[in-house]
Nucleic acid binder design. Structure first.
Ligand SMILES: [Mn+2]
Ligand SMILES: [Mn+2]
Ligand SMILES: [Zn+2]
Ligand SMILES: [Zn+2]
Lengths: 126, 126
DNA sequence: TTTATTAATGCAACAAAGTTGCAAATCATA
DNA sequence: TATGATTTGCAACTTTGTTGCATTAATAAA
């Protein structure tokens, strides 16, 4: 794993932004700072950073894909504003893990992971 | 809204299958019964049926999109088997609606809709 | 410091899943 | 059956990535 300009810039961009960014956003931000990376490179770096556990891929059910820096309290869910597209974190684990046990028993289904998102209007957009 | 062969066959296919189907699945099933419809037609019919409220589009966070017949007890969530791709319904509303109120208050976010899926192993695949 | 090694990059082509414009076919009804 | 609005097929296009391959560049070895 080498330390290249794209890799460094990419991590910096993700660490500055609190909301997860799309690959397109990231590419635009790189170009804005005169780092004219190719989209293939960006996708490959995102893959690589994900495999290293430095970032997480956020796949929302509206089919958009975004990337966020991995934190310590890792697993969480998102509030997605349908007007301005802002994304905020929200925690829900306690409530979910209790219910998952019920589901596993009643449905005879072994849950490995879940996804949950809330789509609506952020404070500014209401 | 006309009653065309594709439209009729499409509704019949969706009513036979309990698990939601992808556009590709549907196209394959149409072709299997010698109805050689074009993919554009299938997508347009799915759009139209969705607008009529006869079917629902299920957008999973793994980015797959499936279609299911609209029922009376409409809103629900899904258990998705990561091995055989089977999808089963699961209800979770009571638990969620209580928590959503907390979120709306504490995060000042107006929730319009949510999505939740559980990915794991169905009984047969465990 | 120079060289060698291997990862990272750019580019073009490809791919899956849809979408759109337009002309041709078909359904419904008068 | 003639008419007119819908539906359909087809080709081209879009978005979001992915892949092969030749070139460049970071780093470790000499
Ligand atoms: Mn997050
Ligand atoms: Mn369902
Ligand atoms: Zn907003
Ligand atoms: Zn299964």
């Amino acid at each position: 794993m080498r330390s290249t300009p794209v890799r460094k810039a990419l991590l910096k961009i993700l660490s500055k932004d609190q909301a997860p960014l799309s690959a397109f956003d990231i590419l635009a931000k790189l170009h804005a700072q005169k780092l004219l990376a190719n989209k293939t490179t960006v996708y490959r770096q995102l893959d690589s950073l994900e495999k290293q556990g430095l970032i997480h891929t956020v796949r929302l059910s509206d089919r958009s894909v975004r990337y966020e820096l991995a934190g310590k309290d890792d697993h969480h869910h998102h509030l997605v504003c349908v007007k301005c597209n802002d994304v905020k974190d929200v925690d829900f684990e306690n409530h979910l893990s209790r219910q998952e046990k019920n589901i596993e028993k009643s449905k005879k289904f072994k849950i490995l992971r879940h996804s949950m998102e809330f789509f609506g209007l952020c404070f500014n957009c209401q």
